[in-house]
Structure formats: structure tokens, C-alpha cells
Simulated scan of single mutants.
Amino acid sequence: MTKLTRRTFLALTAAAAAVAKPGLVRAAQPLNVSVVLGNAMHWVQFIAAEKGMYKDEGFDAKLLVMQGSASSVQMAISGEYQLATTQPETFVSAVEQGASEIAAMSAPANKADWVLVGSRGVTSIEQLKGRQIGLSGLRNSESWLTTRLLEAKGLKKGDYSFIIAGTSPAKAAALEKGGIGAAVLFQPSAEFAIKQGLTPLASFEDMRAYPTVFYIVKKSWAGADENGMRSSRALQKAYSWLWDPANRAEAIRILGVYTKRDTAILEPVYDDYFVKQQFYSKTGKIDLAGFKTVLDDMAEDGQAFKTAPAPAKFILDAKLGGLAT
């Protein structure tokens, strides 16, 4: 056996420190992620931060409250957010207006988990005639999908009107006051409203594939120091962790920390995401067919463009960490 001398010990210590040093540098690398804390759709981000997936990839992740898709996209372009949340329509419009340095990395779901909830006393779709319906935006997927949903239920354009009512918590408050006839609520606000006695009028679960949220990055950031690949790996680990039934109780507990909702509210959301309807993505990959539908709807709307561009124009290259199928 070789005798461990002081000189040998110091040499081994120095070598170990040299190996560890890059990891220590990476651990301090900032990763600002914009999310809506009260929205269960960002479950994967909560897990990636809480369970150390980002830390394992060398990031010091901070989840920051976004003020809306437009500001989130602007913060991504400026570099204030390294990983930003946005509705696809806002992001696509920005790229079409020249922001070609940003690209979509991942989508937490490729179907809408929304529920159309009636205000106090409104218990049927027919009662929405002549009433206002609260949305978060008027020229986005929420508006277009709700229009199609109502058409399938027998209501035509002109039978009702849309009004911007803010985020889901604000929409839920408006429902309680009776200022609007119904609102499109995201989870877990929808489940909370239903538990409070409001009536679910329709869900979007049977609608076509349609990614409603993108996580976007700057291409230059993604290509530097393997940032895109490392953050992509962290997200994929978080998606996989969420889908493991053994993690159900802890996943619900973590979601409760961020959404401030009780377990009884969150358990049905978990079941819809991962057991019954299985809304949530297993890999974070963007469904290109569903994204094409978004672009086709935008072309029909006509504000951003008249002819839908190819989805590939907006997707982060797989070599930089892009997730698409």
C-alpha cells in the first residue's frame, strides 16, 4: 500500500478542488423564471426549483411573478428573464415583429385545462345569452377556443360578449360579485370556485390539441455554456418526477405552497393532470400539430399575419435544448 504523504494529500486536495470549482461556479449562475404562482400549469417549474433539478444542472433558479405575457416576452428579450412564460400568440407576434432572438423551448401541456364557470345563479350555457364572459385576453387562444366551445354548445357570436377580467383569481372574484355571467378559469382557481358553489358550465378537455403556454429563451443564452441543454434536462427530470405516482402527495404539497390552495382543492387537479384526463405533458415537448393550429387561428384572426408561417420558425433547435415533436 502506498503511503499517503502530506505532499500527496495536498496534491489530491488541489485536484479535487479543481474538479469541483466549475460546479461551484455553475451553482451561482442565475436563472430567472417567470411564472404565474397561482396557476397549476407551472407545476413543473415549482418542482424543478423545489426538488433541486435546476440546482443539479448548475443554476440558482428564482421563480418570479410575471405581470402578463407581453411583459414576460419583453423581459426575455432584454435578458431579465432567462426562461420566460408566455401565451403562444404573444410570443409569435413578437417574433413576427422582429424579435427573432427568442424561441420556444417547451410546453407544460398541449391541451387546455380550463373550465367555463358560471357566476352565482348561472347554471346553464343558455343563461349566458346577453351576458359578458370574462377572459384574460380578447385576441388569443382563450377567446378563440371559447368561441368554438360555445358554438358547439349552441351559442353563436352575438349571443354573448367577451370582456377582459384579468387573471383567474380576479375572474373568480368577478363571478362572485355577479358582474359577469361566466369566466374561463385556469386551475386550481376553477376547482376552488366550484367548491365554493359556482357551476362548471363546460370544460375544454375535449377540444383539439392546443398548447396554451410556452417556455421561451433567447437563442444566444441557450447556446452559451450549454444553458439551453442544462435547463431542458432539468425540466425533463421535473416532468418525469411529476408523473411518478409515488410522488403524488409531495407534488400536491409543493403545489399548495405556491398556489396557496388546500389539498382538497388540489387533489382533483392532480387527478385530471396525471390520472384521468392526463392533461399534463410527460416530456415537455411542444406538439407541432397543435402549435400549427394556433398559427392557423392567428392567420384567421389576421392581426399578426394572413398566412400562417411554419411552426419550425419559432422552435428552439434541439441542439440548444428545444423540445418539440
Rank of each mutant, 00 (worst) to 15 (best):
T123G: 08
V184Q: 09
K218I: 00
Q29D: 13
A318V: 00
A318Y: 00
K218Y: 00
T199Y: 03
S281D: 10
K3Y: 14
S161K: 13
G130D: 06
G284K: 03
P245G: 10
V184I: 12
G121E: 08
D271Q: 12
A15I: 15
D271L: 12
F162N: 08
A170R: 11
A249E: 15
G228L: 01
L138E: 09
T283S: 13
V65T: 09
Q127V: 12
K177L: 11
E50H: 10
Q74C: 03
G322S: 01
W243L: 04
L288W: 10
F214A: 01
E126A: 12
P22Y: 11
A190E: 02
P169M: 09
A238D: 08
A152W: 02
T167H: 14
G302I: 04
S78E: 04
S71H: 10
S106E: 00
N227G: 01
K306Y: 04
G23I: 14
Y273S: 12
D159A: 12
Y270Q: 13
M41P: 02
M229R: 07
E50F: 06
V92L: 03
S106W: 00
G121H: 07
A304R: 06
I133Y: 08
Q278A: 14
Q87R: 09
F162M: 10
T2G: 13
K219L: 01
P188D: 02
I133T: 09
V275H: 13
G68W: 04
V294N: 11
T13L: 15
K237S: 09
S281N: 08
K177F: 08
A84S: 05
A304S: 13
Q67E: 11
P169H: 06
G197I: 06
V33S: 05
E300N: 13
L149I: 11
A48D: 02
T8W: 15
E191Q: 09
V257G: 10
Q82Y: 02
K285F: 07
F192E: 05
A76W: 00
A304Y: 05
K153E: 13
L31Y: 12
I77S: 02
S69K: 07
E96Y: 02
T147M: 04
L149R: 08
A27Q: 13
M105D: 01
R208A: 07
F91A: 05
E89M: 08
A49G: 05
A15T: 15
A14W: 12
G154T: 07
K55Q: 12
S136I: 10
A308T: 10
S100G: 01
P22H: 11
Q278M: 14
L295R: 07
S100P: 01
A84T: 02
G322I: 01
A70V: 11
A104W: 00
A224S: 08
K292R: 15
Y280H: 09
